[in-house]
Amino acid sequence: AADLAARPGALSNAGLKPTPLRDVTHYNNFYEFGLEKTDPADRSADFQPRPWTIRVDGMVAKPRTYDIDALLARPLEERIYRMRCVEAWSMVIPWIGFALRDLLAEVEPLGSAKYVAFESVVRPSQMPGQGGVLPVLDWPYVEALRLDEALHPLTILAVGLYGQTLPNQNGAPVRLVVPWKYGFKGIKSVVRIRLTDRMPRTSWNVRAPDEYGFYANVNPAVDHPRWSQASERPIGTGGFFGASRQPTLPFNGYGAQVAGLYAGMDLRRDF
């Protein structure tokens, strides 16, 4: 990872204490590299995040292909965000990136576009988890947002963390970060962004629709079928006795900014 300059973003949670870098980079769910939390750090050394391009197309007036170097050359912000995994643990991560809305503005979405679909890279030769005996997920990993969610200023494409370019295990070279949603919405190593008028398929929703919804907004009132989402274990707070559960906040604490997106919706049904 190379040094990456960024100015503090206005939407950053500057008051939060970030999770130690070691934990942010060695406790990851990135099934393309394996199922264990330590697999992404242990098994991603051969992954080549350069050269890299992202294709942005679909229902847009000006489809474009972005080179990663052009994305890194944009004005970048540090955004310290809470990250809440659907498995009931959480971190605070100082991301570096830019608002997805800025990128989308350049390709000019058509009036008919309602959703934004994302796709990860498929490289079984560099991503050992994409082989394996049992099919874990259908590759490529796919995720999606409603267009208004994608245009929300909190939604960023991250190209770095902790003052450096993204480590392979965190989704190099570019990933999505949507801080009010469960971590699995933050698709990693993105190669394609497509605007569409139909709700796209999303990997975990396809895998287990009763457990993982399309929206996946952090919601302490809607439990996962196998565990409560009311509270969470903060990562990296020491051994048994340093860590204590903390209550999970609606929309992961970003409710004041994003609750309006879901006005009138039943979030128990659209979980």
């Binding site: 060695h26 406790y27 939390k37």
Partner: peptide, 9 residues
């Protein structure tokens, strides 16, 4: 604190 990032789990 030698059981990794999520020792309780």
């Amino acid at each position: 604190d030698r059981l990794g990032a999520d020792p309780v789990n």
